[in-house]
């Protein structure tokens, strides 16, 4: 594991790297690794130390994985855990389609490296409903037709739930401002605002 917990400086890194072969491999620069792979020296070896362990919970289910550091939380969810409810809209933190909750806080999963979520608890759109019973926000989106194509919807809903929890849903104007990180190209905005306001006003536990 790439954790360094010591108060010493100087030789810390070297001492630490002695701990396991995996860690030793980490001391090689990626370019060296690449060169090894490039020359087809030992691709399996390369793969072994290109990946590092990651433990996290997704929708309350624990996962122990090995991932490349460059894998984003979004791509981990979609491509490896096959939780495709979280969407890729821009891959640069500019649209909000990939919004998930990390330890209860809404974030853009496209800009979060998966390995930075060690020990964290992730909630995606798939984890919002209680079995077959929709979360009140999901039901409100249906009632108010808060979507058309549906692609931004999981991000909008995750963001909407957080918006109320954060205490930023006290007026239409405030909701609009705090939901502005979620773009909807079909233009369902007014319906989304109505849905959030209704959930907030009904005061159901969310």
């Amino acid at each position: 594991m790439a954790e360094i917990d010591t108060n010493q400086s100087g030789d810390t890194r070297r001492d630490f790297l002695k701990k396991s072969t995996l860690i030793t491999a980490l001391s090689l620069t990626p370019l060296t690794v690449l060169k090894a792979a490039d020359n087809k020296v030992d691709e399996q070896f390369a793969e072994l130390f290109e990946k590092i362990p990651l433990n996290l919970k997704v929708n309350n289910k624990p996962f122990s994985l090995k991932v490349e550091p460059r894998v984003t939380l979004l791509d981990l969810l979609r491509e490896q855990l096959r939780l495709t409810g979280t969407k890729k809209g821009c891959d640069h933190g500019q649209c909000g389609a990939c919004t998930v909750h990390v330890d209860g806080v809404r974030v853009n999963s496209c800009l979060s490296l998966a390995v930075m979520n060690e020990g964290k608890s992730i909630t995606t759109i798939e984890g919002l409903a209680n079995g077959d019973v929709l979360h009140p926000m999901q039901a409100a989106f249906i009632k108010h037709d808060g979507f058309q194509c549906g692609y931004c919807t999981p991000g909008q809903i995750m963001s909407a739930v957080a918006c109320i929890r954060e205490g930023h849903a006290n007026s239409k104007e405030e909701i609009r401002e705090y939901m502005s990180g979620n773009i909807c190209r079909c233009g369902a905005y007014p319906n989304i605002i109505d849905a959030i306001q209704e959930v907030k006003e009904k005061g159901a536990a969310i």
Binding site: A2, E3, I4, T6, N7, L26, P30, V33, P69, L113
Partner: peptide
């Protein structure tokens, strides 16, 4: 994106040491 190396620390001094010595960190 290159598959960079990833290290994590809880100690400021360690972090400083890791970056100051390594032009690519």
């Amino acid at each position: 994106m290159i598959n960079f190396q990833y290290l994590r620390t809880t100690v400021v001094k360690t972090a400083l040491g890791l970056v100051s010595k390594d032009p690519k960190a």
